[in-house]
């Protein structure tokens, strides 16, 4: 699907997801164009992580469609989506605590068999995050929070995804590390990876993103260019903490 030379990579239409009887996503529609950074902002429980989990196939929508490259993916299990080019750095990092940093990264490339490319990407991750290189023989669980976040992002990159889903990469990190993570997110994007970014830190997210969606109780209440959202009065009040 191409309009004006812009390729639509991901499109959700009227997606409904449930946790048991809890209606977590109540008809989400959004899209991500190739090459963009798009952010989902919103309060705790607004459905941001659920949206990510539904896209990546950890959960499946009860209603609605999810298209990736023009193909429906909403019934495909998570482990198969990785091979199609979608990888994620999940909320809470979820690295493998009792595998070494190196093995964690190797697991990120689980679906690939191009040894040379994997080695190349390992070097690329070590260039992005030199700290991981220093600690490559350490168990993942012994890393600090920030290092674990780097590892979670690095692990996702090892799949060489075309679409990278980042869920709360700044959560629990010191401000200086948050800066580093967001700079890295931009660098990853500049190398051609499309990014869907979920963040509670709305200011930082809108600074790096091209477009944004504001979620409230499982629905999209606002969508616009990131620059416009930053100027939006409601966004400034509710999510950027201005009075």
């Amino acid at each position: 699907m191409t309009t004006n030379g812009v390729k639509r990579m991901l499109e959700l239409e009227n997606v409904h997801s449930y946790y048991g009887n809890i209606h977590a996503l109540q008809g989400i529609s959004l899209y991500v164009n190739e090459g963009e950074i798009v952010t989902l902002i919103g309060a705790n429980g607004a459905g941001k992580s659920t949206t990510i989990r539904t896209i990546s196939g950890i959960m499946h929508p009860r209603e609605g469609t999810i298209m990736f490259d023009g193909q429906p993916i909403h019934d495909i299990p998570a482990h198969d989506l990785v091979g199609q080019g979608i990888a994620q750095s999940p909320e809470g990092r979820r690295i493998f605590p009792r595998l070494t940093v190196r093995d964690n990264l190797e697991m990120g490339a689980y679906k690939r068999s191009d040894a040379a490319g994997i080695k190349e990407d390992l070097e690329m991750v070590f260039t992005l995050f030199p700290r991981l290189k220093e600690r490559r023989m350490q168990m993942g669980g012994t890393l600090s929070g920030g290092e674990q976040q780097m590892l979670a992002i690095g692990r996702a990159l090892m799949a060489r995804p075309r679409l990278l889903l980042l869920d709360e990469p700044s959560m629990g990190l010191a401000p200086v590390l948050v800066e580093l993570i967001f700079e890295t997110v931009q660098r990853i994007n500049q190398t051609g990876t499309t990014i869907l970014l979920v963040e509670q830190n709305a200011l930082m997210a809108l600074e790096v993103a091209k477009r944004g969606y504001v979620l409230q109780t499982g629905t999209v209440v606002l969508q616009d260019d990131a620059a416009a959202l930053m100027k939006n009065e409601m966004v400034r009040k509710v999510y950027l903490g201005e009075t």
């Binding site: 998570a78 482990h79 999940p90 690295i95 493998f96 689980y110 799949a159």
Partner: peptide
């Protein structure tokens, strides 16, 4: 690789599926 995938799945099944492990 398969052995590491077994350990990965033992440590976090959901995270294992996120990296493509069936």
């Amino acid at each position: 690789k398969l052995g590491k995938a077994m350990r990965a799945a033992a440590q976090d099944r959901e995270a294992a599926s996120m990296v493509g492990i069936n």
